[in-house]
Amino acid sequence: MGITIIGYIAGTLTTFASLPQLLKSLKERNMENISLAFVVTFTTGLTLWLIYGILRNDYPIIVFNILSLMFWIPITYLKIKDVLENKGSKSELIT
């Protein structure tokens, strides 16, 4: 039980650490200082952690990766949209 509580505390801290970035990105609609490679890699990692948690039936991993994806999918969308529309460089699609 104690280990599960540690998982929920860690999940809460790491998940909600992303909230300020999401709010800033939505408010300013400025994604220039966020790396596309980071966003895509991080979102993919969260997705894989979610799959891992589901396969292990590990509720803290499942819950907090779902919540994290709720923050990072919009950030990923905004960054890709920014790169494709006008602000990003073509080389950023590769790196």
Rank of each mutant, 00 (worst) to 15 (best):
57 N>E: 10
34 I>G: 03
6 I>N: 06
82 D>G: 06
90 K>E: 12
7 G>Q: 07
53 G>N: 05
94 I>N: 05
5 I>F: 15
70 M>H: 02
78 L>T: 00
64 F>Y: 15
36 L>E: 02
20 P>N: 07
49 W>K: 04
73 I>N: 01
74 P>L: 09
32 E>T: 12
32 E>L: 08
71 F>D: 01
76 T>K: 00
28 E>T: 14
51 I>C: 11
84 L>I: 12
65 N>S: 13
89 S>Q: 13
28 E>Y: 06
28 E>V: 00
53 G>E: 02
13 L>H: 10
50 L>C: 08
83 V>G: 03
10 A>W: 05
20 P>I: 04
68 S>I: 04
28 E>G: 11
89 S>L: 13
13 L>T: 06
89 S>A: 15
18 S>H: 10
91 S>C: 06
23 L>R: 01
87 K>D: 14
49 W>P: 12
94 I>A: 14
76 T>I: 01
66 I>S: 12
79 K>G: 02
72 W>G: 00
17 A>R: 03
17 A>N: 06
9 I>A: 15
29 R>D: 15
12 T>Q: 07
16 F>E: 04
68 S>L: 05
82 D>S: 14
17 A>M: 14
88 G>N: 03
62 I>N: 10
38 F>L: 06
94 I>P: 02
93 L>G: 14
44 T>H: 03
31 M>Q: 10
78 L>W: 04
58 D>Y: 07
92 E>K: 06
13 L>R: 09
79 K>F: 07
8 Y>S: 09
35 S>N: 03
43 T>Y: 04
14 T>Y: 12
81 K>Q: 11
2 G>V: 02
53 G>S: 04
6 I>G: 07
85 E>V: 05
62 I>P: 05
79 K>P: 03
89 S>G: 15
53 G>K: 00
85 E>M: 09
66 I>Y: 09
72 W>E: 07
5 I>M: 11
77 Y>R: 04
38 F>A: 01
23 L>I: 09
40 V>K: 00
67 L>S: 06
77 Y>P: 01
94 I>W: 15
59 Y>M: 11
88 G>K: 02
11 G>S: 09
9 I>G: 08
84 L>K: 07
29 R>E: 15
74 P>A: 07
53 G>F: 06
83 V>T: 08
85 E>G: 04
48 L>F: 14
32 E>V: 04
60 P>N: 07
87 K>V: 10
77 Y>Q: 01
16 F>R: 09
50 L>F: 13
21 Q>V: 01
26 L>E: 02
78 L>S: 03
52 Y>V: 00
93 L>M: 14
61 I>Y: 05
6 I>F: 13
53 G>Y: 04
36 L>R: 00
27 K>N: 12
73 I>H: 01
92 E>M: 05
42 F>L: 13
69 L>T: 00
25 S>C: 10
91 S>E: 14
32 E>D: 15
57 N>Q: 05
8 Y>I: 04
9 I>M: 11
68 S>F: 04
78 L>A: 11
2 G>T: 02
82 D>F: 14
64 F>T: 01
90 K>C: 02
38 F>E: 00
32 E>H: 08
59 Y>Q: 01
26 L>F: 13
